[in-house]
């Protein structure tokens, strides 16, 4: 029987290409709605320019943003899935192929020397589930929004809101608002960051919890606006994910995503 490796690589490269070139419909609709209700003309123009850019990218099949970012793969492995190849190696090959084919920007460097690095750049988070499917969701994160994301180990009884709001205020126009904000609350130091990032895979059209709605309203009350130029629309959506934590801890992570909320997924039976 032939290996599943080649089919997997093809799917991953396709998903990455789709994410980089087509903004998901939930995000496009949220931007279009924001343009409709925005009371600040300058802000409205910024959102309309974004929508025009999205249209151009979709039509040309080219990256909407030159910062083609870092793909983060959320891999879910069904425990009965027959994976007869190296996952990490296959992901690297897929990223390399998409980089050449789409094309994507080669901007990987070694962190201390800052010298160019030729290896494909990506992150991988694996989970095991039931069944025989191998499911992959890819989230593309640019540097502008990743650079303003933040994590704090708060005092156990501290209110999380000031940290969240201050993080967004500090970031101003840098992460390319309108942003999407993922909050991971609880778990551990690294656990809350993973929780926060994973929320960014959710649809902007899912029902909001009262807590998510409250934080979204407060963020938008800041008036930072699209590109930090002022306006009602600073964030399109806030997602919150909680996990139990140690009684002496309160880890909180704020994962910020730019308007170019690039995400795609696929699932194959193995």
């Amino acid at each position: 029987m032939p290996s599943h490796r080649e089919a997997f690589i093809l799917h991953v490269a396709q998903a990455l290409q789709e994410a980089e070139t087509r903004l998901p419909r939930d995000v496009t609709r949220a931007l279009a709605n924001a343009a409709k209700v925005e009371s600040n003309d300058r802000a409205k123009e910024q959102i309309c320019t974004i929508l025009e850019n999205v249209k151009l990218a979709g039509a040309a099949g080219l990256p909407m943003c030159q910062d083609t970012g870092v793909p983060i793969f959320f891999v879910e492995i069904g425990r009965e899935a027959n994976i007869d190849f190296g996952l990490k190696e296959a992901l690297a090959t897929a990223v390399q192929r998409a980089t050449d084919a789409v094309p994507l920007r080669k901007h990987a460097v070694y962190p201390l020397t800052r010298r160019s690095c030729d290896e494909p750049l990506f992150d991988m988070i694996c989970d095991v589930s039931e069944g025989n499917r191998l499911s992959v969701a890819v989230l593309v994160k640019g540097a502008g929004s990743e650079n303003v994301s933040a994590l704090a180990m708060l005092e156990p009884l501290q209110d999380v809101r000031p940290f969240v709001l201050n993080t967004i205020w500090e970031s101003g126009g840098k992460p390319c608002p309108p942003i999407i904000v993922g909050l991971g609350i609880g778990s551990t130091f690294d656990g809350c960051a993973r929780l926060a990032k994973r929320t960014l895979l959710r649809s902007l059209e899912e029902d909001q919890s009262p807590f998510e709605a409250e934080i979204l309203e407060q963020i938008n009350e800041l008036g930072i606006g699209p590109m930090g130029l002022g306006g009602d629309t600073t964030a399109l959506r806030v997602f919150v994910e909680e996990a139990p934590c140690h009684t002496a801890m309160l880890p909180v992570a704020v994962a910020v995503q730019c308007w170019a909320d690039r995400k795609a997924r696929f699932s194959i039976k193995l």
Binding site: E52, N53, A57, M64, C176, P226, W259
Partner: peptide
């Protein structure tokens, strides 16, 4: 407007030159 790489592309007529290429294309 940030993220509008395609819009910018439409307005670039020609690449005239590149300097400090050893820093990498980006």
């Amino acid at each position: 407007t940030g993220g509008c790489g395609m819009l910018a592309r439409e307005k670039i007529v020609e690449v005239l030159d590149v300097y400090y290429a050893e820093l990498g294309a980006t």
